[in-house]
Simulated assay, not measured.
Amino acid sequence: MRARTNAIAMIDGQLSLVDAGTVEGHRQFVQYQDGIVRLLDDQLEEIAAHELEASRVLAARGLEHLAVSDGSNLLILGAAPGTVAATGTPEAAVTVADVNCDAAAFVGDLLIATAPAAETHRVLLINPATGDVVDEATIDADGATAFIIPHPTELVVVIEFPMGQDGCVAQRVEVISGSLRVDEILCGQDPVIAGFNPSGTRLLVTPYPDDPETARVLAWPSMDEIGRLSADDLVTEIGIGLAACWINEERIAIYAMEDSLVVTNESLGEPVRARLLLDFRDEGDLETLVSLDAGRVAAGVWTPEGRFTLIFEI
């Protein structure tokens, strides 16, 4: 049995999408490339764009508020009063000097950002209006690159710190009365955090590449296991890949490596393979899955001829 998919569009190259919030129930994203920052809708069609000098966009609320890196400093655009023009584009920046961040997320009225340090990683709580660091924590994660997964409704994020052959650590970071509370979760399990369901009651965790055997769904915030799916369950030899996302509240998309896209229920049960444009056994590889809106997904695909982004409904 196979799940039905409906291809909507194919875009050259793989898009590096930054969640830019929800407007009237529809998600928006920011894409930065070649000196242009673009606001995209839930079909990845352009809403607005403007020029921007940065090395990377880390966090966004529309185009009005952006956290970006210039390679040496953290810049917060449009955060201070009077800094957004009539066009909706930021005109001024608050600079957090000498902080080269690798991830960030707006949480309530504050910004959580991460920055590598000597054999550790800094987690910073920043006032975006002033650039002041109001609290800070240090994580033992040598050589890591951080990824921040915000909770959809709470003032909390999960930060994943993959460290190559040294595995991965995940931290629950909550903002309480203007301070950080940091707790490690899933200790010793090398978790890859694929994201929260839309209501924020469940967390999808995929396996680290060193042991690509089992994906799990955990209750939030208790972290009790609700369901799991193994490579043996799928009868696939290579294992379960990093690419995974919630399709909606009831369904999950996950990748059986060099095999197929797999669709399951909200507890990783009832898996069925989905037919896409490529046969992943010999024509390409599925590298990313991003939920655009309920039932709509963007897949980052590699082929020998190049990379592309496929938007489809399922």
Rank of each mutant, 00 (worst) to 15 (best):
146 A>C: 03
87 T>R: 09
90 P>S: 13
52 L>V: 15
128 P>V: 04
133 V>Q: 08
113 A>D: 13
135 D>P: 02
143 G>L: 05
76 I>Y: 12
137 A>Y: 07
128 P>S: 04
53 E>R: 14
130 T>I: 07
92 A>T: 05
76 I>A: 11
57 V>Y: 10
66 L>Q: 07
71 G>Y: 07
142 D>E: 08
111 L>F: 14
103 A>W: 02
72 S>L: 09
67 A>S: 15
126 I>E: 04
122 R>Q: 12
55 S>F: 09
72 S>K: 04
75 L>F: 06
108 G>C: 05
135 D>Y: 02
54 A>S: 14
73 N>D: 15
136 E>Y: 00
88 G>Y: 08
147 F>E: 10
144 A>C: 06
137 A>F: 09
108 G>T: 04
123 V>F: 04
91 E>R: 14
77 L>V: 09
75 L>E: 09
98 D>S: 04
78 G>Y: 11
104 A>W: 05
139 I>H: 02
120 T>R: 01
66 L>R: 07
54 A>M: 13
72 S>F: 11
138 T>M: 05
112 I>P: 01
52 L>A: 13
85 A>K: 10
87 T>D: 14
99 V>N: 01
95 T>C: 11
114 T>M: 14
69 S>Y: 10
86 A>Q: 01
102 D>L: 07
67 A>F: 14
68 V>P: 03
75 L>I: 05
68 V>G: 04
142 D>C: 09
97 A>V: 13
70 D>M: 13
61 R>G: 03
84 V>L: 15
146 A>E: 01
118 A>W: 08
103 A>Y: 03
61 R>A: 01
146 A>F: 02
118 A>H: 03
75 L>A: 10
101 C>E: 10
120 T>F: 00
140 D>S: 02
132 D>W: 00
65 H>Y: 10
120 T>K: 00
55 S>P: 00
129 A>L: 01
70 D>K: 14
91 E>T: 15
141 A>L: 00
122 R>V: 01
53 E>M: 15
97 A>M: 10
103 A>M: 03
101 C>L: 09
49 A>F: 06
64 E>R: 14
123 V>Y: 04
117 A>L: 05
130 T>R: 06
90 P>I: 09
59 A>I: 07
67 A>V: 15
137 A>Q: 12
52 L>C: 15
119 E>Q: 03
62 G>D: 03
102 D>I: 08
63 L>F: 14
83 T>W: 04
98 D>F: 04
90 P>L: 11
81 P>D: 12
62 G>V: 03
90 P>T: 10
121 H>K: 06
114 T>C: 15
93 A>H: 06
55 S>G: 08
69 S>R: 06
110 L>Y: 11
48 A>S: 15
137 A>R: 12
107 V>E: 08
141 A>H: 00
60 A>H: 03
